[in-house]
Every structure is written in structure tokens, then in C-alpha cells.
Design a protein around this nucleic acid. Structure first.
Length: 429
DNA sequence: AAGTTGGTCAACCGCACCTCG
DNA sequence: CCGAGGTGCGGTTGACCAACT
């Protein structure tokens, strides 16, 4: 047993302590290095989960939730520290446009990043943009809720159900939202490769900063395409962004990557965390199944968001020519992703994840001159950028074509079904 | 130099879901 | 079926620091 030897203030003598009900006064506030070490050793030896046992077994006077949080946000391996890169920022914005305040889901798309980091980043950004009266999203990104302001009401996963009470409020707020910016096109974007993006893009995006510290942004070099009147009259630009209650779990552009590179999965002994990841994937799977199985004749936002590009990429062609199709290929195969993780030998899995981790690191750095904070230019997802992205991904994910080739017929059928639903999408011109 | 403001980060809180007995 | 315990998620808060006035 590891005994915690850190200082413990007198019971009840500090606001930084709380009782766990058993007479033990649990410590609150910042963690010490000694506490970190104790927790790290314990998790290495016992794995994650059963966090309340940490206190019992180590004497660490921290509640289970605190232990879990500390581990997840600071101690677990392969955490990415430091500022978000420009591409990460862009991805966060894109994901937020898709998912809303689903920080955990967003974090799952950003290897090594925590939901807390993303949340902090977004909230900071939100506050700044609100203060400046600037839009939350670049003109070329239209949040899904603006495309489909009437969410349907079936909720298919517990993540969505979990915060129903909050989401009701959010939905109420959401109903007051106006829709897209004056110049934004409410059509789902197709790039020149006939690829699909689940958020809408203005074909002529203006430069939009993603960085939290971009001087050009902070000093209003950002010039929206529309008049200042419409700019300020459009509440999108100044209101707190809220999302409808049934935020649809989306497949982010890094979905495929996430399945293998999420750092938490690198700990192969960690079945618990794997189950978390699978839980996310299962959510995706449920949606895929709902889509493939025909969600009635209701053209839902879900359907729109998960639709595949035209099926010219269905077969053995080089799907990795296509940035987004890579994601969707993986998505269509999402059922296998969890099972693969469970079945794959740990060494192989680990190796693959390491490789993918590197790939992601490269991916996140592409287009970022310095690899540091975006200067605002790279945040624009233009058609040309997409082409570039596709080529970048081409070199990063050579295995994807193989993966696509090994898809089962069922997966292919599912994909085809989803493709068929493409024509039913709302807002697709 | 002192006060103010804003940004970042870490941590806590409350709620809801899941599992299990 | 029900309650307790464990867990995950999103919201919120407060400390700290740097830039600004």
C-alpha cells in the first residue's frame, strides 16, 4: 500500500478540505508532486477506474473524482501540453460547429488534448469574441444548428441524454438563434474532389483568426464580408453560443485518427479507458446503424451530417485522395473499430497507435508555418485548402486505402445506403 | 509603481447515467 | 424495482500571471 505522506491540514480547518462522509477530510485544491506520484504509481499498478479505491488503498486524501480528473488531465501518458496549434484551433472550431459544447467528444478528436483544455480554450475565445462583437465561427463555417434549427427528438446515446436538462435550456436559447451570416451559403460544402464536409463553408471565406493571441485578429483586421450593420445585427456574432438539446454526435474530420491515436488508448492495459472510447464510437455506430437502417423518412440533421460523398470512392480506388472520405470510410467501418481494438494484439495496436500518433502530430502541424499559434490564415478552410489537405492526408494515411479495401460487404452496403440518403439532405444544393 | 483588465489554467461542483446488489 | 456507489460530462470558479493604463 502506498501511504500518502503529504501534509494534511486539520480537519475542518480549511476550506480546501472536504469530508467524504467517513470522517476523513479530503484535501482540495492544487495537487502536490507527491500526490501526483502516488496517483501515478497507483494507476500504473492497478489501472484506471475504481477511483474511490485510490484513497482507500493509498491513503491519498483526495476524492475519487479528483483523482480521476488529475489523472485524465495531467498524469496520463501522451498528453499534449502547450498551446494549441493553428490546426488544432481550426479543428476545435470546426468540431464545435458540429458538436456544440461536447468537450469530451471534441477531445476525442484531438489526440493528447483534454476536454478541459478545449473547454478552456473555447470559453476564452467565446468571451473574447463576444466582447469584440465578432462571430464565433468564421464565415465559412456554419454551425450545424444553423443549417438544421429543428432538432429531432430521439436521443440515441447516453451522452445526449445525460445533459438533457441543460440541453433544454440550450435548446430554448437556440431557438432564438438567427441563422447563418448574411453571405454564408446554407449549402453543405463540396470541394472539388466531390468530398463532403459536414459543416457549411462559404466558398469565399474571409480570413478568420483562430488564435487566441493573433494581433491581427484582436485589432480588427478581420473584415467580414458583410456590412457592419448586418454584422452586429446578427446575434450569432455576439450571443453566447448555445446548442440544441440533441446535439448530434458527429464524425469529425479526424474520426479515423481518433480511433487509434487517442492517447488514452495507448495504455493497453487500460480497459476502462478503452471502453470510454468505444462508448464514443458506439454512439457513432448507433447513428450509422440508424442511418443505414432508415430513420424513417425524416430527413434528419443526423442524416445530413453523416452522409458520405458520392460513392465514386466506394471501391478500391484511392480513397486517401479524399480528406473527408477517409473519415467517412472509417466511420462506415466504425463497427469494426472497437472490435479491432479489442482483438488486436496489444503490441500491434500499440505500434499502430504510435505511428498514428506521429502522423497526427504531423497532421496538426501542417500548414502551420511555425507550428505555433495560427496567424489566422490557416484557419480558413477553402476549397484549395481542402485539396491541399487531401494531399497531406494522402501521405499521412497510406493505410487507409487498405482499410477501405478490407471493408466488408455489409459496410459497403451501409455506405451505399448512406450515399443514397445524400439526395435527401436538407440544405444541400 | 500601483491598480486594472484580460487570459490561462486547474480544480471543484452538480447532474445524470450506468452497474450492481 | 430501487437505492447506492461509481463514473463521466459540462459548467463554473478562483488563483495566478502578464499586459495595459
Amino acid at each position: 500500500m502506498i501511504m500518502y505522506g503529504g501534509e494534511i491540514e486539520k480537519a475542518g480547518g480549511s476550506a480546501n478540505h472536504m469530508s467524504n462522509g467517513g470522517g476523513v477530510v479530503l484535501k482540495k485544491g492544487p495537487w502536490t508532486a507527491a500526490e501526483d506520484e502516488i496517483l501515478s504509481v497507483y494507476v500504473r499498478e492497478n489501472g484506471e477506474g475504481n477511483w474511490n479505491a485510490v484513497q482507500k488503498n493509498t491513503g491519498l486524501v483526495r476524492c475519487g473524482k479528483s483523482c480521476r480528473l488529475r489523472w485524465a488531465n495531467h498524469l496520463r501518458p501522451n498528453l499534449r501540453k502547450g498551446s494549441f496549434t493553428g490546426d488544432e484551433e481550426r479543428l476545435i472550431i470546426q468540431l464545435h460547429a458540429q458538436l456544440g459544447n461536447k468537450w469530451a467528444r471534441m477531445a476525442a478528436q484531438l489526440p493528447g488534448r483534454t476536454d478541459n483544455e478545449i473547454k478552456n480554450y473555447w470559453n476564452t475565445r467565446l468571451k473574447r469574441l463576444q466582447r469584440q462583437g465578432l462571430p464565433l465561427y468564421p464565415p465559412d463555417i456554419i454551425p450545424n444548428h444553423q443549417l438544421h434549427p429543428h432538432p429531432h427528438h430521439h436521443q440515441q446515446n447516453h451522452h445526449q441524454q445525460q445533459h438533457q436538462h441543460q440541453q433544454i435550456d440550450s435548446y430554448t436559447s437556440f431557438l432564438t438563434l438567427p441563422y447563418s451570416s448574411p453571405t454564408a451559403q446554407t449549402a453543405t460544402y463540396h470541394n472539388t474532389n466531390n468530398n463532403y464536409s459536414s459543416f457549411s463553408l462559404n466558398p469565399s471565406p474571409s480570413s478568420y483568426p483562430t488564435t487566441t493571441s493573433s494581433p491581427s485578429f484582436l485589432h480588427s483586421q478581420y473584415t467580414p464580408n458583410y456590412s457592419s450593420t448586418s454584422f452586429h445585427n446578427n446575434p450569432v456574432y455576439s450571443m453566447k453560443q448555445e446548442f440544441p438539446s440533441n446535439q448530434i454526435p458527429q464524425i469529425g474530420v479526424f474520426n479515423n485518427v481518433n480511433n487509434f491515436t487517442d492517447n488514452e488508448k495507448q495504455n493497453n492495459t487500460n480497459l476502462h479507458r478503452r471502453s470510454i472510447s468505444c462508448s464514443l464510437l458506439e454512439d457513432v455506430l448507433v447513428e450509422a446503424e440508424a442511418l443505414a437502417g432508415g430513420d424513417g423518412d425524416r430527413p434528419s440533421k443526423r442524416r445530413q451530417l453523416t452522409a458520405s460523398p458520392p460513392n465514386h470512392h466506394n471501391n478500391n480506388n484511392n480513397d486517401n485522395d479524399n480528406f473527408f472520405s477517409v473519415s467517412f470510410e472509417q466511420y462506415d467501418s466504425s463497427e469494426n473499430i472497437c472490435s479491432l481494438q479489442d482483438l488486436k494484439p496489444k503490441e500491434e495496436e500499440s505500434l499502430q497507435m504510435n505511428t498514428m500518433q506521429d502522423d497526427i502530430a504531423k497532421l496538426l502541424d501542417w500548414g502551420s508555418d511555425s507550428g505555433e499559434i495560427s496567424n489566422g490564415q490557416s484557419s480558413v478552410l477553402t476549397d484549395d485548402n481542402l485539396v491541399l489537405d487531401v494531399h497531406q492526408l494522402n501521405s499521412l494515411f497510406p493505410a487507409d486505402s487498405t482499410a477501405a479495401e478490407t471493408r466488408t460487404n455489409d459496410e459497403q452496403n451501409n455506405n451505399d445506403k448512406i450515399n443514397c440518403s445524400w439526395d435527401n439532405l436538407h440544405g444541400v444544393s
